[in-house]
């Protein structure tokens, strides 16, 4: 499937993946993320239940310590 991930068009070799599955697929090693699919917040606790499908827009914000 083709998705828009953080403003980049990407081909993902899978028919469907959960948000957590996509994070693993992309090897995002950062633990503290906020995620949106098609503009809608997907909370940390929901990432195993929400699926990413062909044509979806996924945005991942990586939060880092310091302040």
């Amino acid at each position: 499937m083709i998705i828009n991930l953080n403003n980049r068009i990407e081909e993902v070799v899978a028919d469907e993946l959960t948000v957590n599955g996509l994070i693993k697929y992309k090897n995002f090693t950062f633990r503290l993320l906020v995620t949106k699919v098609n503009g809608k917040l997907v909370k940390t606790v929901d990432r195993d239940q929400v699926f990413v499908n062909d044509g979806d827009t996924v945005e991942v914000l990586h939060l880092i310590s310091g302040g």
Partner: peptide, 12 residues
Amino acid sequence: FDVADAKMMLVE
């Protein structure tokens, strides 16, 4: 906040 966990909690 200084800690990323707290930042994530607040944004969500």
